[in-house]
Design a protein around this nucleic acid. Structure first.
Length: 886
RNA sequence: GCCCGGAUGGCGGAAUUGGUAGACGCGCUGGUCUCAAACACCAGUGGCAGCGAUGCUGUGCCGGUUCGAUCCCGGCUCCGGGUACCA
């Protein structure tokens, strides 16, 4: 019988839908649970591309396998549906984004359903649904009403915040300001990146290295705007520590660690000569204070104006003006060459009371540390470059740990920079009493930090690169903030029973040029009055797209609960997510933001786990062939013809080069899964996505190779659907060995997400089946079961043809029998001096000494041994024999 | 620059983590079936030499450890991802 995949796939998709086969179990007593989650997609107008089904198939195989292993499985899907494209479309056409969004979701849902993925569609969620974002707003209110207790390293409700007496004395307004200064969510004037083209602010993370906006590619500029910010750095330590225990790829863990960017050092106070002011710097090398020959402060530093002397005023003002301008231009090229000016002022080095000049330079960033540094040019490459350029003194204070005497002399003379370890020199002062000469780096840092603390000149300090998270956007199509700005300056959040705050209908969706959200035009919606007649205005910014995806995994647990965010017992049962699969492009931001929210919810007692995602796995990107001509211009893939392994442009017949590249519209090399489903069926698509290579690496898509897995499925179907091939006799030992080996390998490989080798093992078994010609019904059934997570439609059909009535989705996974995996004999490879020469079959339990004798006695050995006795014979039982001949 | 990851036949990729390199699939070659083709089935397929048995060679490059290295160590080259004056 022919493999009619169209009919089979339609039949079983209908069956699963009608029977709600994959409905999540309600029973929470099964101790074996498994929450398998995909990163939910943004439903774009372009529909699915073959990158989506890669991760979805992997989680689907895993979920189906776990069900068969007796687990309660939660495997949901939903839509991260707020976002710019639907809004841009609304601006152009006037179509409400909710309509565009609904259409796109419908397309995605249809395409996903055609892949036979075992989602529980009753749990579908959509971030744009008011019944969903009601709870996003609810969480925002929690963030607003939470402060971080540094002592307990824990978020706590603001009503548990102790107001210092001196603040209380200043009255309500100051108390309010104090509380606001502690909230995890705060509203503030912030210098932000602004994209004039999108008319939207961007988080630092959304601005690329070349100063362009990642969404549109246009150059962003700096602006001062009132924005909502989240104090994620308060959780830096928790977020960093938590990484250690996660079962995530090490590379992703490293990326998160680097992003958090913890560095230990000290803050040191320098008195400013001739003023009462101090200049505090952060340094990771307090031990090099004796080498600090000048100071640098960022152009934006508050103190610049105050300390600049009359003589230097003009040049400093000019420099600051230039620096501000420069940050608006392409920063990368200009950033290489160091610039700066002298303020005319000196600071006093606390270790030896020497005067050091204070400079302004933009290589010191305002946002990190204190925005000021002590420069140690002899031991810091950036300071060294700067000092050389401006002829500032370079004092070596660490005798370098190098062999090369010339290099050592250069370093000692201040002609070369040394950043490694060495013994301190020139590092003592009789008056101040500090002396670290002769110590090495680690001891020097310790001694200097202790000394600074004891003299009250500084303190040990930990700094993080992680910045406050800019959390508002000037957009219509996002979650409205449940916030009112009152005329007296107070900011309040709505009460829970006023949620959801829905988006008002609008006629025009275009944001204002000055940074006003389109919501500013929503007159009726905008203005509110409280019961005392106080006037207020709703927040017109909306939340960024991250908001909805920060917590969606929690809503899946109890998707339609309108009384609470989710049922506590259900949350306790299902959390944490056991397996989370998605693209590495979310390695830092989504996962970090999401972990942050989760930790706050944990601190507030809303969720039961400290971390949301126990095991994370990143699928590799799927690439596709693209073509370029001699000049490097890209030629669309549909305009290429292959002849004799060479590729030609059909337009003009010229030869082009085949390259492998990301799928993109401009290269016209996007593969649409619908085409593959039509030609070969969903099971073939699923199988090919998995067979193409390991899940976590990049791999090129090649349509021609789909044939390989299609052949395998057709062969499977043709063989097992034919009653003549099913024998009533028992299988022979060879077949049973093959079967049990396959059962073991496939199970092990699914557990470790190595689907490509699982599939090849099944192919090997099918080849054996063809060789045998007939198999028992029992073997046919077991093979069908292990194939089912990979090719579920085909497997259900075969299962039915083999006489089973119910769906196989909850059939127990076949057990393998060790007895068939044991080998009685082993084909020992025999090597001479490491080169394999022949195989010898020996009993598996033969002792090493016997093996040695048997090998040496074999006539084939004589040729390689020669006349003298072998120098050595290595016997590794069950592995190999190696004879060493001189 | 720094931090990760990678390099294996014509191609996608295997290799129990130190023990027969190239599983499985694509492609290609030959055969069976067919009037013919497609499909299907069977066989072969890293390179070089040889009719052949077989031999030599071979996992980006150079060196090392080892009875034995795709795997471990040292030094490079190239490719990919992240990040960037973070003091």
């Amino acid at each position: 019988m022919d493999y009619n995949f169209k009919e089979i796939e339609q039949k079983w998709q209908n069956y699963w839908e009608q029977n709600k086969t994959f409905k999540t179990p309600e029973d929470l007593t099964n101790p074996r649970k498994c929450y398998v989650l995909d990163m939910f997609p943004y439903p774009s107008g372009a529909g699915l591309h073959v990158g989506h089904p890669e991760g979805y198939t992997a989680t689907d195989i895993y979920s189906r396998y776990k069900r068969m292993k007796g687990f309660n499985v939660l495997h949901p899907m939903g839509w991260d549906a707020f976002g710019l494209p639907a809004e841009q479309y609304a601006i152009q056409t006037g179509t409400h984004p909710s309509i565009t969004t609904k259409n796109n979701c419908d397309t995605f849902r249809r395409q996903i359903k055609e892949l036979g993925l075992s989602y529980d569609w009753d749990k579908e969620i959509n971030t744009t649904d008011p019944l969903y974002f009601k709870w996003t707003q609810w969480i925002f209110i929690r963030l607003f009403n939470t402060w971080f207790d540094e002592k307990l390293q824990k978020g706590r409700p603001v009503n548990e915040l102790t107001i210092p007496e001196e603040i209380k004395e200043l009255g309500d307004r100051e108390i309010r300001k104090y509380i606001d200064s502690k909230r995890l969510a705060y509203y503030d004037n912030a210098q932000v990146w602004w994209c004039p083209s999108c008319r939207i602010v961007c988080a630092n993370e959304e601005v690329l290295n070349d100063g362009s906006h990642e969404k549109c590619g246009n150059i962003v500029e700096k602006k001062n705007l009132k924005q909502w910010m989240l104090r994620i750095p308060l959780y830096a330590e928790r977020l960093l520590k938590g990484i250690d225990d996660l079962d995530w790829p090490e590379g992703i863990k490293d990326m998160q660690r680097n992003w958090i960017g913890r560095s230990t050092g000290a803050e040191v106070d320098f008195r400013i000569d001739g003023t009462d002011d101090n200049l505090t710097v952060f340094t990771t090398r307090p031990d090099t204070l004796f080498g600090a020959t000048y100071m640098v402060i960022a152009p934006e530093h508050r103190i610049v104006n105050k300390i600049t002397t009359v003589e230097c005023r003009k040049q400093v003002d000019e420099y600051i003006r230039m620096a501000a301008l420069k940050s608006d231009l392409d920063r990368t090229d200009l950033a290489k060459e160091k610039t700066g000016v002298f303020t005319g002022r000196y600071a006093i080095n606390p270790v030896n009371n020497k005067l050091v000049p204070i400079w302004v330079a933009d290589y010191v960033l305002t946002g990190y540390g204190t925005g000021a540094i002590m420069a140690v040019p002899a031991h810091d490459t950036r300071d060294f470059e700067f000092a050389q350029k401006f002829n500032l003194p370079i004092l070596c204070i660490q005798d370098p740990d190098v062999q090369d005497q010339d290099q050592r002399n250069r370093i000692l003379a201040g002609a070369e920079c040394w950043t490694e370890d060495g013994k301190y020199i020139n590092s003592s002062d009789k008056v101040t009493g500090i002396d670290i000469n002769g110590l090495s780096k680690e001891a020097g840092i310790k001694k200097m930090t202790d000394w600074l603390e004891s003299k009250n000149l500084g303190k040990a300090k930990i700094n993080y690169k992680l910045r406050d998270w800019l959390f508002s956007r000037q957009r219509y199509w996002g979650e409205p903030f449940p916030v009112i700005h009152w005329e007296d300056g107070e900011i309040t959040v709505l009460s829970d029973d006023e949620l959801p705050l829905e988006l008002p209908p609008l006629e025009h969706y275009l944001p204002g040029e000055t940074g006003e959200s389109p919501l500013a035009n929503a007159g009726e919606w905008l203005n509110v009055t409280d019961k005392n007649g106080r006037k207020g205005r709703r927040e017109t910014n909306t939340m960024p797209q991250w908001a909805g995806s920060c917590w969606y995994y929690l809503r899946f647990i109890d998707a339609h609960n309108n009384e609470s965010i989710f049922d506590r017992e259900k949350e306790k049962y299902w959390m944490p997510v056991d397996l989370y699969i998605g693209g590495a492009e979310h390695a830092v931001l989504h996962l970090l933001y999401s972990r942050f929210w989760h930790k706050v919810l944990y601190d507030l007692g809303i969720v039961s786990t400290d971390e949301p995602y126990k095991k994370l796995f990143n699928q590799g990107m799927i690439l596709a062939f693209a073509y370029e001509n001699g000049a490097g211009a890209k030629i669309p893939a549909d305009q290429i013809e292959e002849r004799d392994g060479k590729f030609y442009n059909t337009e003009n017949g010229s030869e082009v080069r085949q390259i492998v590249a990301k799928m993109s519209k401009s290269l016209k090399n996007v593969v649409n899964p619908d085409d593959v489903v039509n030609r070969y069926g969903a099971d073939s698509l699923r199988l090919y996505e998995m067979f193409i290579g390991p899940l976590d690496v990049m791999k090129p898509w090649d349509d021609r190779n789909v044939k390989g897995v299609f052949n395998f499925l057709s062969r499977s179907f043709r063989f097992f659907s034919n009653p003549e091939n099913i024998s009533i006799a028992a299988d022979d030992n060879e077949l049973l060995k093959g079967l049990h080996k396959t059962i073991k390998k496939v199970g092990d490989d699914i557990e470790s997400l190595k689907f490509n080798t699982a599939i090849s093992e099944m192919m090997i078994f099918l080849n054996l089946v063809y060789k045998k010609g007939k198999v028992s019904k029992d073997t046919a059934c077991r093979f069908t079961l292990i194939l089912s997570p990979f090719a579920p439609h085909l497997a259900e059909e075969l299962w039915q043809m083999l006489g089973n009535e119910k769906s196989l989705a909850y059939e127990p996974w076949p057990e393998y029998d060790e007895q068939y995996l044991k080998e009685d004999t082993i084909e020992y490879p025999v090597s001479f001096n490491g080169k394999m020469r022949f195989l010898i079959e020996l009993p598996a339990d033969m002792p090493a000494e016997e093996i040695r004798k048997a090998v040496l006695a074999d006539e084939r050995s004589a040729k390689w041994i020669g006349s003298s006795a072998p120098a050595n014979v290595i016997v590794v039982p069950k592995k190999i024999v190696n004879v060493v001949v001189k």
